[in-house]
Structure formats: C-alpha cells, structure tokens
C-alpha cells in the first residue's frame, strides 16, 4: 500500500485520510487529513467545539471513526489498535488521574498496568515525581493539588514508558502563567528526547510558541495548515501598526487608511493605535502619505507579520474564542 511507502521515505507519526465522526446528525469531525512527521510538536488550533478532542480521541483509539482511515506510528488504527496503544500515550482534556489517590499511587498504578514489578514501579514513580517537581506532593491526595500540579502529574503518568507519540489535549487551559511555562518546558524537553507531541490549544500564542506545525481547525475541518510563519504569510504580507500622537484623530485616521489601502482597519486596545492589513509592502508608504497629507501626526509605526490572532480572524471570519466563552467546554 502507498501508506507503507510514505512511512519509508519520510517517517510519519500520523497519517490520516478523511476522518469523520458524527454525533447524531452533527459532524463533529468532517473529513480531516493529516500527515504529521515524527519528532515535532504539532498543534491543533481551534475554538471550543471545533472537533480537536474528537479527532484526538479517534487517533488514540478511544473513538471509532465513522469514515476514513489512519496510521499511527505505522500501525493501522482500526486493524491494530493494541499496537497503536503501545506506542502512544494520552493526556486528556480533563485530568485523567485519580483524585482520591495520592501522587505516587497514581503513577504506581499506571506503572503496574504497564507490567512493571512493584519495586520498579515505585522507583519509576518517584523518579518521575522528582523530575516533574512533585516530590513534595508525592503523598498528598491529588484532590488537594493545584491545577498545574495535576496537569504535571497527568503528563508524568503518560511518561512511565516514554511514548513515541504523546497526545496532549489542552494542556494549559485554565492554568496560571507560571504553571503554563512549566508545561511548556516539559513539552520542549520531551521533543528533544524524540517523542512526537500532538497538542491541542485554544491559545494562539501557545501554538505559536510550541508547535513546529499548526493545523487550524474549525467546524470539524482543517481550514489552514503549515508553520506559524506560513500561516501568517498566507493571510497577507503583513500588518501595518500605527500609533497616533493625538488619540482624538483616530476615527479620521481609520477612514483615511481604509480608503488608501482598501482593506479593513482595526482599532487596537490602545486608544491611539490602529492596525491595517496590507496587500503588499508598498501600500505602507501610500498609507502614511495619506495621513501626512491630512495633518495627522504619527508617533510610531511598524510593519509586522500578522499575529495568529489576525490569521484566525481572516481564516474564520471571527475572532478566536476568549477566556469566558471557553469555560463550558465538554468532552
């Protein structure tokens, strides 16, 4: 089969063709193709309800796809689910550790299920707790852990035998910045050891910071795919950021810029700043000339790549979800 050829020429962690999952009439995942190389961090970026978790659960053998096929680490998802399970680990969106047990018991449990003797299981559990900064909480019930600690324990449980492919579903949602950085460090350390990481996120900067390649998912479809640089480039050559000397001239400046550029101009949260999409870099000088001709003074301007926020806005026609909308997340 051709799929085998692929894994020979360029080893793929995941190759999926036309994955579909329906819940009743609703197509939660609506034809997803993937070709994820080994040894990288791959990000699924999308708003709540986009189908990220469902896709991940199918790839981790927890859900059967209604249509399509996939190879995970060279094994057919439907024909050899057990072989897939020996190569991957899943850290789900909702903590999959046992809240009633303490930290070390949770890790011993997984180690025993992997087939380690009781003695080696204990040793491995404390080694991992130590590495993940949880040694002081080893004997504390997970119920009493902070969100960040729980997440780290959850990832540690996936590392009893370091998998070739780790699924990380929204690893930092709801965490404070410090805990988030700790998780990022873990992911970075992990890829250097050779594990491929597939992570989902609703945070644009997280995808930007961590992922080598990103798939933007919306309504069960991949609407864009590439490195964050490629995604930004696909949206346009760049963005012009302008800061005015006098905030009261902003409305007039917005009108002038959109006339001169023919593209939408957004008002930034800074009352003196605005940003415009550029069709080409030459347009920038035209825009500044228009402001100058109308005596609107500019204190600062810069030409930059669009942020992923802007990418998302352009691709989906709506801004990425914000914190409040995120909460009611389901499975």
């Amino acid at each position: 089969m051709n799929n085998d050829l692929d894994t020979h020429n360029q080893p793929l962690a995941i190759k999926a063709i036309g994955l579909v999952k329906r819940f009743g009439k609703h197509r939660a995942v609506d034809g997803i193709d993937l070709a994820i190389p080994q040894g990288i961090v791959y990000g699924f970026l999308g708003p709540n309800g986009a189908g990220k978790t469902t896709t991940m659960k199918m790839l981790a053998t927890l859900l059967k796809p209604d249509e399509g096929s996939a190879q995970v680490m060279g094994h057919d998802l439907l024909k050899e689910p057990d072989a897939v399970r020996t190569r991957v680990s899943l850290t789900g969106q909702f903590a999959s550790v046992d809240e009633d047990l303490n930290g070390i018991e949770n890790l011993i449990l997984i180690a025993r299920l992997m087939g380690y003797s009781s003695r080696i299981a204990k040793k491995r559990a404390s080694e991992l707790l130590d590495a993940f900064g949880l040694q002081d909480a080893a004997k504390r019930q997970v119920k009493k852990y902070s969100g960040g600690m729980r997440r780290r324990l959850d990832i540690a449980a996936s590392m009893i035998i370091r998998p070739d492919l780790l699924f990380l579903d929204e690893p930092t949602t709801g965490l404070d910045p410090r805990s988030r950085n700790q998780i990022w460090d873990i992911v970075r350390a992990l890829v250097t050891t050779g594990t491929t990481v597939l992570l989902t996120t609703q945070y644009l900067d997280e995808a930007d910071q961590l992922a080598d390649r990103i798939a933007v998912i919306d309504h069960g479809k991949i609407i864009a795919e590439g490195t964050s640089g490629e995604l930004k480039a696909s949206v346009g050559s760049g963005v012009l950021h302008v800061r005015l000397l006098d905030p009261s001239t902003r409305a007039q400046a917005q009108q002038l810029l959109s006339d001169a550029l023919g593209t939408p101009v957004r008002l930034s949260s800074d009352p003196a700043a605005l940003a415009a999409q550029l069709a080409g870099t030459k347009a920038a000088s035209k825009a500044l000339a228009a402001l100058d001709a109308n005596q609107i003074e500019v204190s600062e301007f810069s030409l930059g790549q669009p942020s992923l926020d802007e990418v998302f806005l352009t691709l989906t026609g709506k801004p990425a979800e914000n914190e409040e909308q995120k909460e009611g997340a389901k499975s």
């Binding site: 992997m114 491995r124 080694e127 130590d130 900064g133 590392m159 035998i161 370091r162 594990t195």
Partner: peptide, 19 residues
C-alpha cells in the same frame, strides 16, 4: 539542573513484558 533531570527521567525505558 531541572531540565537535565527531566531529560534524564525521559530516556528510553525498557518495556516489561505485557502483563
């Protein structure tokens, strides 16, 4: 140091026979 410790804990583990 903590990064080094983390990497050390993440080296290839010998997989025991399947229970």
């Amino acid at each position: 140091q903590s990064m080094a410790k983390m990497r050390a804990a993440l080296v290839e583990q010998e997989r025991p026979p399947r229970p």
